[in-house]
Simulated assay, not measured.
Amino acid sequence: MADTTQSTKVWKKFRRNTLALTGLIFICFMVVVGILGYLITPDQTPYVNTMHLQLTNKKPGRTFQFLIVSRNENIKQVGLFEKMLFGQEANFKSIPITSSRIVGNKVFAREYIGDDEQAEEEAYPLVSGQNTYQKTYYLGTDIYGRDLLSRLILGVRVSLSVGLMAVLISMVIGVGLGAIAGYFGGKVDAAISWFMNVIWSLPSLLLVIAISFALGKGFWQIFIAVGLSTWVDVARLVRGQVMALKQVEFVEAAKALGFSNGRIIVKHILPNIAGPILVVASANFASAILLETGLSFLGFGAQPPMPSWGTMIKEHYGYIIMDAAYLAVLPGLAIMLTVYAFNLIAIGLRDAFDVKGQNTSV
């Protein structure tokens, strides 16, 4: 009952913080978008990687007509859950056109090759079913003619999944080492503290790059790399909190009752420092997203064609000084809003748990 009462008090204090609550709502919205994934993307092919090089860097809101030139009936139609996770491979190939007409069993169409150019009319075989369709690119297309909105939506998955897995890894390592160092003290504390100081002295991005070199490039490797670089904050916090709590009455009583050290740490000490741990975990989530996007920008993160906000900025940062700055600004804005939302949550949790002296900024 006491835990429920404490949780209720924390929630009431948290929801009174308008900015923190707004950040939580935004993150919940992003989580829903990330889970739905391909079900809400205009391009539902794997990695939203449908390219039309004729449509490179088209402005947001442009609508184009497409001609289906061939169909592949052997493509397997996947179920709803599999489609949500991995997408559905297209069973046709199409080209953008400016006009078309059907004569007999042929379709005569002019392929779109630019706004100011006119292609000659060519004949294409008439395929069964629908021959033409229209598609609107609500946020325009990238340098490869891919739908920018689809890639932004799927990029949510990369950032949130890397952040979540990195935080879980850092929590397991940080809480474990910090609790051991703070509880046992002495030579154990000295050895763990020395190791933490060594890791602490290394710049996070350089450490992640070094780990990525060791593990190789890839999506799963980035989980481990980012997680191994963010555990020190958790360990230092837990160590200090455990050192402060191990001398209090309820811990001494547990020792007198003969409880094991492991039980005392897990059952009695850690639940009492859950608040500060949640605060630093929220801040580390934001740090992990920034590290992942930085790695992707440098080419060590999620590898193409997997959509990543950092990779999207890397591909389009040259357009910032041109008339297509939105190609880099939109993924940058997504990163900024997501990181800011997690920082707002961290500040809200800090105030709700009344955690003093903890740095929750990234």
Rank of each mutant, 00 (worst) to 15 (best):
V248W: 12
P307N: 03
G348C: 07
E89C: 12
V33C: 10
E122D: 11
L55C: 08
H52I: 12
T311A: 15
L19F: 08
E111M: 08
L177A: 02
L177P: 07
E73M: 11
I25T: 11
I40V: 06
G348H: 03
D354E: 15
P125S: 09
A334F: 09
L327F: 05
V355A: 06
Y319R: 05
V33T: 13
L19R: 12
S161R: 09
T338R: 03
S229R: 10
S159F: 09
A166G: 06
V172F: 09
G348Q: 01
Q247A: 10
G178Q: 04
I277Q: 10
S128I: 15
D142H: 02
N72K: 14
F219E: 11
I313S: 03
I35T: 01
G258P: 04
I273N: 03
G299L: 07
I97D: 01
D3C: 08
L55P: 01
Y319Q: 08
A210D: 08
G174F: 04
D147F: 10
G129M: 00
E111L: 05
K59F: 12
G301F: 03
Q6K: 15
L270P: 06
I192Y: 05
D142R: 05
D323A: 13
I321Q: 15
G176E: 11
I277G: 02
S100P: 00
I347P: 10
Q65P: 00
D147K: 05
V127Y: 04
Y38F: 09
I102N: 08
S308L: 10
L330Q: 02
L333C: 12
L295E: 01
T132S: 07
V242Q: 00
I321R: 15
G332K: 04
G218Y: 07
G332C: 01
E117P: 05
A191P: 11
T50E: 15
G258T: 09
F14L: 02
N284K: 14
Q6I: 14
I143R: 15
G140D: 04
D142F: 01
Q118R: 10
A324K: 14
M306G: 00
F250R: 04
E120V: 08
W11Y: 13
L85Q: 12
A328N: 01
S287A: 12
K255Y: 13
Y144G: 13
N261K: 14
G34T: 01
V280E: 07
G310K: 09
A2L: 13
V208Q: 01
